[in-house]
Amino acid sequence: MQQFLNYLLNYVQSLPGSVNLGIIWGLMALGVFITYKVLDVADLTVDGSFAMGGIVCAVFIKSGGNFAVGLLLGFVAGLLCGLVTGLLHTLLGIPPILAGILTQLACWSINLKIASGAANISVNARTTTVLVSQLDKYNALWILFLAVAIIVALLYIFFGTQLGASIRATGNNQKMARAQGINTKFNIVLGLMISNGIVALAGGLLAQYQGFADINMGRGAIVIGLCSVVIGHAIFSKISPNFGLRMASVVVGGIIYYVIFSTVVFIGMDTDFLKMLAAVVVALFLGVPYIKSHYYDDFKKRLANRKMKKSQDVEG
């Protein structure tokens, strides 16, 4: 009994850490949300831009720079990644999914160069000042919460402006957008830039939080992002279609994702399977509505029809 209580206590103590990671990855998912849901583009740049944000931030802080400037530089690096993908798509006519993959690949080399060939760069929270660190989880929790709340609010305001509304229209119906005089190409590039900027910002936060940036830290980011988006959508879409709430639900989706994962790991699952688990979760969340509408509903109808026919045959 005593042993079990200790076990439970350990788990509860690990929760703030998972929530913190959840918020950071949720912020990254917010970037994915902008491309995947608002712009209706599947952008795979994020794996590269996330790592770039982290590495740029870590390198800058390690060389003695201010953490806020480091985050800003990471953000700008993300903007540039989005710009490259956007231009590959709009100027050269490369399909967005492929354009994203190309940028992601190029990012790998660039990240390695920024890190001067090192596979990871440490940011020591004991010797340098950082915004958030896992050494002080409770402090980090409210800072991250506040930061994400501000970013969601800013995005909400942005998508309410004329420019933001025209980006939403571009993602919704390009033909209509062009007929209403909206420069869809410009908007796609702008949307990709903002999205990757936010993703890179999250990368910078993660590098500070965990105390290092890794050349591989972005791998699978798109899947985690999608995971958060679909979890958030599955849980909150029925409550309200409000745009601000939808964005908040993405972050909450990220938190739920991380809490589930840390639970699974805590129970004792092999961590090698984590990425596979992420893929399975996304496949399930995307697949279940389809299965329901295509197989299960038909099955129910067939049963009902059979029953009705039987009773009619008896009457006849």
Partner: peptide
């Protein structure tokens, strides 16, 4: 029309035709 946007947002988009979409 843009299906995921409201009636008023659609009209606003059309109303801004030929104007710069301001931030």
């Amino acid at each position: 029309t843009a299906a995921d946007m409201t009636v008023i947002e659609n009209l606003a988009l059309a109303f801004g035709r030929g104007q710069r979409r301001s931030l």
